[in-house]
Design a binder for these strands. Structure first.
Lengths: 245, 245, 245, 245
DNA sequence: TATGAATGAGTCTTCATTCAT
DNA sequence: CATGAATGAAGACTCATTCAT
């Protein structure tokens, strides 16, 4: 229909994208129990076309997973520069959990030191782990996350939260639960105060009663201007980062 | 229902138990992706025998699930009398998580208001929920668990922890994580510590045939039409040759 | 329970009879598509018991068929002595059709000169054919049935009528049809008069407008005592038979 | 519905036609007792191909039946214009009987008021009934067929004649019988003549194993648990020996 | 290159038949 | 001798994958 500029190439790319997104959705809902024919049908292409792009169902799965990881990596990298470490870490985690649907199970491969055949997958997994590790360590350095957590721990927690979210029928209630669990990753000193649910941490990260840098809980004073940081150290650190860009 | 008379019953009972335990293990590992023939083989019986006892794969699944729930219910009831409320609740939860393996996903039905066809399954689910609710409320009454948690919340957390546990390869580390998460359900927490890693993932090469055009080796796949060419190029070349002469 | 007179023998006989009757009914309805287990269950015995009495499903089938044939043979023999030839023949045929249900198909074996493995079956089939042939020839001798019909023809007609009867949902209508078809076996000279349906030939063989001996149609005179025979010959023949017993 | 575009369609159409004709023949001979694999094999295609064209065995059956009905309808319509009413009716009926083989039994659905799920089937059945009814009424109007016959009667007669024809081994004799029966539908009849016989029935012996106790030969049955003993006596003897030592 | 038809191994399920008790 | 559990071949059906067009 469209007068071709680069020839069929554009169509092929569009097809590939369509297949990926369709497969992504279906895998997220039905977790592998999806016939390839169904994917082809919904993508509006023939079965052969799927196989021209992805030589195996496994390959398609991997492509979906790689794409998913890349999106998460991008989101993580954005957070690394734009947010305070602790906020970045928790925001990232919540994002991962919310975006993964039932694909969370595939994430199990991420938990491995990962010698996986497919090179691209390995690369994506590694990049994901790097981002995750960086965010984790940064948050740990500023004391916003328990020091005894490894990246593998965090991955496992994320996968678990994913399935919590799909289990709890009430989506809002599910998010509250995830929030609660993620709060459990904060240093135990502040555990006493975690008792208020917050639904808005992700959507509007500015309005919180936690330290904007390290995420530690801030005492609520009835009077005066509400505190943004837990102390001078965090305030100074945040300022330096602001100035750096 | 209750088997009380003599005769060959003993054998049948033993068989049934064997099948159930085999199925339980396999479902716990592979989550429904288990051929019934495999279960039969491992239980040392014929396929027909499985069907004599469980008229459907679904029926077997339900039986496994019911048995699992009954065990959990029994454990929960024991805890109700022998332990302090908070300890009973957390002990029960940890027990549930540790025993459920990948069956945790089946537990999703538990999270529902649960109008399930099979009467026995429904009954078991209800009893499970009753026990869970009782333990939860008792613990909440003595202030050992956050007051804003519903039974559905707890079920979701349990399911999530189940998948955390199977994700984290290091069992000890997994348990520590679960502990951490469960502690998040307390109004104020006390936590334990530890950490390690592990991993494995394999890929199998397989015997090969040769491309009918270029002679390159072809992978033998267990399903689908056996390949004759190594790809479209060779196929096309062969076709041209066919058409030419 | 019962104090044994002849020991278990009585029970066994009763069981065998029960099985036969159950099997007979089920075969008549579902034409072979009956699991042996179902027969066992309905007869109130174990599967093994069926096999003790009938070493094969085929054997059971044969037994059922033999019993059915024996009943038909007995009925046929009764008719040979108690009725005029033509009446005997048509009455027998109608009886066969009505009693056979879907077992009619099994009757196909009867159409064969029948070198069948099972000796008892062969014997029964032969006896059945003998009775049928005798009735047919007697009726033909008195001119009540077309002379160009062979026993095989008659068997085929009977089988066909059987399936006519099961096809026509309305049982009465079905019987009328069968009657019509059977009337087609009478000498063609009288065809003109076959246009009235009679539902009562079988149940009350006395009230017919046909000759009570040879079955030829009788002219209906508006006055006088209704005729019973088509002429003196038949009347005399009938009388001799009455006197003979 | 109508295939008009080019491409591989031709092959597919050929395959579909082949399957239909193979299935039609086999159903006509064995009446549903045909494994789909057998149909596939004879049509020279894989099992999956059959399922691509007919999602269910039932669907295949219906397709066969629909095709059969359509052919009959076409034949009926041709007769409506080219023949005198009575001749058209009887010619059609004879045609139906001769073409239907054992499929006649499927025709039972035609006898029903016919609320059948499959729309196409229903449509075909209705068209068939319409043609049949039209032919019947036309013939009745000119006095060529008894006035007291309903379309349902005629269908039942046709089905019955079908099974007459398959029962009578001698095809010519069978046709003569059918002729005779159909003539019975006329107010007054004219008949044809003829007669012959034929037959065959086989039983297969099979390879044999030996009784584990007395060494007598055992018949090898294709299904069921393979026998180890020649009967209960030997089994019991063997058992006593086992228990003794 | 895209299409969708063909392939066939593998799954669930049934049922005739034998065996242990 | 009766019972019902066990057996396993065979049938319906699915779906990953390749091939002809």
């Amino acid at each position: 229909m469209t007068a071709a500029s680069g020839g069929e190439r554009a169509d092929a790319r569009r097809n590939r994208a369509k297949m990926l997104s369709v497969a992504s959705e279906l895998f997220a809902e039905h977790e592998l129990e999806v016939p390839l024919g169904e994917i082809a049908r919904r993508a509006g292409v023939g079965a052969g076309t799927v196989y021209r792009h992805f030589p195996t169902k496994q390959a398609l799965l991997e492509a979906v997973f790689v794409q998913h990881l890349e999106e998460l990596v991008a989101s993580g990298e954005r957070r690394m520069v734009g947010f305070a470490p602790t906020q970045a870490f928790f925001g990232f985690l919540m994002h991962v959990v919310e975006k993964s649907g039932r694909r969370g199970h595939l994430c199990e491969v991420v938990a491995a030191d990962a010698s996986w055949p497919h090179p691209m997958l390995t690369a994506s997994v590694q990049r994901f782990r790097q981002v995750l590790t960086a965010l984790l360590q940064a948050a740990q350095r500023v004391g916003g996350v328990r020091a005894d957590l490894s990246p593998d721990d965090v991955v496992a927690v994320a996968v678990g939260c994913t399935s919590m979210l799909t289990t709890r029928r009430d989506r809002a209630a599910g998010r509250r639960l995830v929030q609660l669990v993620l709060d459990g990753l904060r240093p135990s000193a502040d555990v006493t105060e975690r008792s208020v649910f917050r639904d808005d941490l992700v959507s509007s990260p500015g309005r919180v009663e936690l330290c904007a840098d390290c995420g530690v809980k801030l005492p609520l004073r009835p009077t005066g201007r509400p505190a943004r940081y837990c102390g001078p150290t965090c305030r100074q650190r945040a300022r330096r980062r602001r100035l750096a860009g």
